[in-house]
């Protein structure tokens, strides 16, 4: 596959390491009242859709950016590639 890196342009997916569902960015609030349940879901539950999935790829053989790649799991069509850091910020993550 070719991943169109937001900074570097098209790169062979062989340069990347895959980590699956980008929901991992949404780490639960450790202060929450239902912290145990939330972390359980976070650590163990993933959707496995036949269709569009937002997933994390690490550009290990490149600029070391984590990317959020929106990919159709049926066709491998990639519709969007973002820097995970930007996505994390947009989800309200900070320090």
């Amino acid at each position: 596959m070719i991943i169109n890196h937001p900074l570097l342009g098209p790169r062979d997916s062989a340069e990347f390491v895959y980590m699956g569902d980008a929901r991992l960015i949404e780490r639960p609030d450790p202060e929450s009242d239902t912290v145990a349940e939330q972390f359980h879901d976070y650590a163990y539950l993933r959707d496995n859709p036949a269709g569009t999935l937002r997933e994390l790829w690490f550009h290990e053989g490149g600029d070391r950016s984590w990317l959020v790649v929106t990919r159709d799991t049926r066709t491998h069509e990639i519709s969007k590639v973002e820097l995970a850091r930007d996505v994390a910020r947009s989800k309200g993550r900070s320090k």
């Binding site: 062989a14 340069e15 290990e60 053989g61 490149g62 600029d63």
Partner: peptide, 9 residues
């Protein structure tokens, strides 16, 4: 460019 040669970054 950064790339992989013989599995080496």
């Amino acid at each position: 460019q950064r790339t992989s040669i013989h599995h080496l970054g």
